Amino acid sequence: MMSYSIAGKELRLKRLLPSGRGVVFAFDHGVEHGPSDFPREYINPRTIIGKIIEAGVDAVMMLPATAFMTRDLWIGKTSLIVKITSKTNLRPENERLLQSIFGYVEDAVALGAEAVAATVYWGSQYEDAMLRQWFEVKRLAEKYGYPSLQLSYPRGPAIKNMYDVEIVKYGVRAAIESGADLIKTYYTGSLESFREVVEAASGIPVLMSGGAVRERFIDFLRDVENVIRAGGRGVVVGRNVFRHKNPGGAIRAIMKVVHEEIPPEEAIKYAE
């Protein structure tokens, strides 16, 4: 029997990466890090989502309930990725390398999303539990024609430096061998090293994790530029945008670097 879901997945991937590249605004930090992660004026999710949508971002990645409560802001204006695993920092420290279920693939379908996302902490003592989650997500996503974005994060007691290129490459290799259609992973610090990460992905699109806030925004734009020059397909960014004094402008600057390859020194003008 013909599998029509293949066409659905191809269509959704093209919407997420409209130029072959994409900029995704990540907004799962309220659970992962707590309300203190946000400037006070952005405690209400609608405030920051409104600014980001107005700036013209390619996609937003949210947990199902946040996507629902902001639906009037993003419907018809951008693509949605529903993240269906998460965890809090309220749990005991030795259990923080385990993601929990925060929704289901059916929720993403009901919301009209373009993709589903789930985290795997490769190297965690809970790796097996997260793989069971991942493969359940992947199985249903394939059924409905949805791409699966894996947040491929090498973290665990045996990992001394999770940004080491060999460690990041290992996580990326594990991601492609577990069926990821898109991979979000750490930036390894240079164009040359990130090129190795892209090579390890063997054609599966790699998106840079925005990570912690850079002291100077232009340095973040230079990281993004290196990712693109290394063959990366874009960025999934949260804190470097919603902690910026001009979040909409920050997104516009990132979009210029990713889609038009405008140098950071010029693109930063959009964020001023």
Rank of each mutant, 00 (worst) to 15 (best):
A113Q: 12
R252T: 06
V213G: 05
R139A: 13
A65Q: 03
V227C: 12
A253R: 06
R21I: 03
H259W: 04
Y186G: 00
R96W: 09
G112T: 13
S209E: 13
G20L: 11
A115W: 06
H259Y: 10
N240P: 07
V235R: 13
V109L: 14
A110R: 11
I52A: 12
A65V: 05
G112P: 06
E136A: 14
A55Q: 03
Y121F: 13
K256M: 07
A59N: 03
I6R: 15
L73Y: 02
K14G: 07
N94H: 15
M61P: 00
L182K: 09
R12H: 08
I52Y: 10
P205M: 00
I167P: 01
R216F: 14
I218C: 07
D107L: 13
K143Y: 12
D58R: 00
L63F: 04
M61K: 08
A110P: 01
L182Q: 06
P264K: 12
L111I: 14
G210R: 01
M69T: 07
F38V: 06
K269F: 05
V109T: 09
A59D: 05
D128R: 04
F38E: 03
E136P: 00
E266P: 00
I254L: 02
V198E: 02
I254D: 01
A110K: 12
V213S: 04
G231F: 10
V257D: 02
V198P: 03
T66E: 13
K77D: 05
W74Y: 05
E166C: 04
A174F: 01
Y146F: 15
E142N: 13
Y4P: 00
V197E: 05
R233A: 11
S148T: 15
A129T: 04
M1C: 11
F27A: 09
I167C: 05
L80Q: 07
I251E: 06
Y270A: 15
A67L: 12
V197L: 05
G249M: 10
F27L: 15
E265V: 14
S86Y: 06
S148F: 05
F25E: 02
D107P: 04
P154V: 13
S3R: 10
A110E: 15
V224Y: 09
V82H: 02
D128M: 02
T185H: 07
E199H: 09
R139M: 08
P205R: 01
G123K: 05
F27M: 08
G231Q: 03
V105H: 09
V168N: 01
G22T: 03
L98E: 11
E199V: 15
Y126R: 01
S193W: 11
P157F: 11
L11P: 00
V109W: 12
R173Y: 14
P35E: 08
T185L: 03
S209N: 15
L17E: 12
R15A: 14
S3V: 07
A174G: 00
Y121T: 00
A141I: 06
